[in-house]
Simulated scan of single mutants.
Amino acid sequence: MACLALLATGALPGTVIAADDVAPTPLLGGYLRETRIVYPLTVQGWEAQGEKRYEQPELGVSVRYAQDAMPGWIDVFFYPVGEADAAVLDTHMRGSIADIGTLVGRQDVVAVHFDATRARRIALQGVEPESADGEVRTASGWIERASGRYDTAMTIGLRQLHFIKGRYSRPADAGGVPVGDLLDAFVGALFADVGIQSTGDCARALPINVIAAGQAPSDAAVDGGDDDARRAVLTPDGRVVAADGDAPMTQALAELGAVMRRQRFPGCVGATPVEPHVPEGHREIRIEYRAPSPSRALVSID
């Protein structure tokens, strides 16, 4: 409550909306308007060969890494997901494996097999324990083509409001470290050295849902006061519910909720784009997202 008192003295206005008028903010062009990715050009001996930007903004960008001593290459994809937890990651991983399975009978693919998915968490500096940032899933297997069998692996992790996906395949008779272990170690090193900063509505105070006088808010994570006429609560799903949207404590809860949201889902650095530091041996990718037109809805990556 001391934190609430401090916030109440200088809280910025939240967006006050009626409880029945809640409309989702678009992920791209709304919640995220600009993203800057700073990534390393060298990861465990693998050298970045080039970038690819995709026409559909929800598909993000990819970077290809290769090294002379290893067959094949590692493709790394960065694409936005917004506020996601481990359950979203698990669902996306299953869907991505299923998508690879649909290649059977096409593109010279005869059969596809993946072993059980392995889960781990990469410890990242400044990330709260309750955040899913740093959660990673890896699956290894093989792809049978008419030209032969290839060992393959896929890793997907959550990092700063984005999915980071790694893909690696090599001939099955290549030997060496198992592809899944190799890719898992590569992604772990990449996570520790990449920075993704986004700006947009992700920095705003939480919207305030105004309820009818005398109606009691429920499911409070943080209670704003005992006076029923001016009572406000911050709910576990990230909403401020209050009878008086202009009350100082209501505004303070909206700001506190935004701070808690950014701790759980790191990567938002404000409403105004910033210039990230690009260390030597790194490269920056800048992506600007336009708000979607009513006639074109963004395709979900889930």
Results as ranks from 00 to 15, higher is better:
G105V: 01
R106D: 15
G101R: 00
D133I: 04
T102A: 08
E135V: 10
H92Y: 12
G82C: 01
S140V: 03
V127S: 05
V110E: 09
V109I: 07
A87I: 09
R106M: 14
R121W: 02
D108Y: 09
A123G: 13
R121S: 12
I100S: 10
E130C: 12
G134V: 05
E130S: 11
G126C: 00
A116W: 00
G134K: 05
M93G: 02
T117M: 07
A86W: 02
A119G: 11
V136K: 13
V88S: 13
R121Y: 05
E130K: 05
E83A: 14
T138W: 00
L124M: 06
Q107R: 13
A139I: 12
V127C: 01
D85F: 06
L124N: 03
R94Q: 10
T117Y: 06
A132H: 07
A111G: 05
V88T: 08
A132S: 13
V110W: 02
L89H: 04
R137N: 15
A139F: 11
L124Y: 09
V127G: 01
E128A: 14
S96R: 13
S140R: 10
T138K: 01
D115I: 07
R137P: 04
I100K: 11
A98M: 04
R106T: 14
R118G: 06
A87S: 14
V136M: 15
T102E: 08
T117A: 11
G126L: 02
G126Y: 00
M93H: 03
G134I: 07
V136P: 04
I97W: 09
A86Q: 08
A98W: 02
A86E: 14
T102H: 09
S140E: 10
E130D: 14
V110A: 10
A139V: 09
D133T: 07
G95Y: 08
P129V: 12
D115G: 14
G95Q: 11
V88I: 03
D99G: 10
G126Q: 04
S140L: 04
H113G: 06
A116F: 10
A86V: 09
R94K: 13
A111S: 11
V112I: 09
V112T: 01
R120Y: 08
A123H: 11
L89C: 05
G95R: 15
A84D: 06
A119Y: 10
V112R: 02
Q107E: 15
L124D: 04
L103P: 06
L103Q: 12
R137E: 09
T91P: 04
D85K: 13
R120T: 09
E83I: 08
I122E: 14
A111F: 06
A123E: 15
E128H: 14
D115M: 03
V81M: 02
V127A: 05
R106Y: 15
S131P: 07
H92V: 15
D85I: 04
Q125P: 06
A116P: 00
R106K: 13
I97P: 00
V136W: 12
S131Q: 03
D108R: 11
T102Y: 10
G82N: 03
A98L: 07
R137F: 05
V127T: 11
V109H: 05
E130F: 15
V112Q: 02
V104E: 08
V110C: 03
D115F: 00
I100P: 04
Q107K: 09
A86P: 03
R94Y: 01
A87D: 13
T138R: 01
V110S: 05
L124W: 02
P129H: 01
A123Y: 10
